[in-house]
């Protein structure tokens, strides 16, 4: 996991490409991407939600889950290999679990509405949409917190700063050596 991360990222990306292909080849339904409103120009409507998900619903949800997984994996890729500790993996795993839970609440809430035609509301939106709007927004906040509060531990430690300063010093030395030799010649 720690050193073979790129292979996992590649596998997830390839799987997403395969799902996308399967969706494009799936049997189509009318107005899957919406249609014009019958009375008001400029508005689009979705129409029959059950029909739109009939052939691709599970595939699309899997695509969404893989995308969320990819976001967590790519975030991990941005952390130097030696800092991908069990602690960080736990934080990232927890974040992924939260985002997958939110995606599931959104998808299952939508399906439940399609079955019953009834919905509760939360902060102005139907419950499934509230999971989408507030949940998706807030679901990635742990990633922000890990970055900001874990900056000195996982992203850029004192040791990293010293290494980088040493690189800059080496660059400065090389430049002054080059200038001196230019002057000498």
């Amino acid at each position: 996991m720690r050193s073979n991360l790129i292979y996992i990222i590649f596998a997830v990306a390839a799987l997403m490409a395969a799902i996308l292909l399967a969706i494009c080849l799936a049997e189509t339904v009318p107005d899957a991407g919406g249609r014009a409103h019958a009375e008001i120009a400029g508005l689009q409507v979705g129409g029959d939600g059950t029909a739109r998900l009939q052939y691709i619903g599970p595939l699309a949800f899997l695509f969404q889950c893989l995308l969320l997984t990819q976001i967590a994996l790519l975030s991990l890729l941005g952390v130097a290999e030696r800092y991908r500790t069990n602690e960080l993996l736990t934080y990232m795993g927890g974040t992924l679990a939260i985002t997958l839970f939110i995606a599931w609440k959104m998808f299952s809430g939508h399906s439940a509405f399609l079955d019953t035609g009834e919905t509760a509301y939360f902060m102005g939106f139907p419950t499934a949409t509230a999971w989408q709007t507030y949940g998706t927004w807030l679901g990635a906040i742990p990633l922000i917190l890990i970055y900001s509060f874990g900056f000195n531990k996982f992203i850029y430690t004192k040791e990293d700063e010293e290494k980088f300063n040493a690189l800059l010093a080496e660059k400065t030395n090389k430049l002054s050596e080059a200038e001196n030799s230019d002057r000498a010649t």
């Binding site: 969706i23 899957a32 991407g33 919406g34 409103h37 689009q44 409507v45 979705g46 129409g47 939600g49 739109r52 998900l53 691709i56 619903g57 699309a60 695509f63 969404q64 995308l67 959104m106 998808f107 809430g109 939508h110 509405f113 035609g117 939106f125 139907p126 499934a128 949409t129 999971w131 989408q132």
Partner: peptide, 18 residues
């Protein structure tokens, strides 16, 4: 008026949204 418009994937559908 049209429930899909205000459901999580809107009028354009799930794949456009994703």
């Amino acid at each position: 008026d049209d429930y899909e418009t205000v459901m999580p994937y809107g009028a354009a559908g799930i794949m456009a949204s994703l």
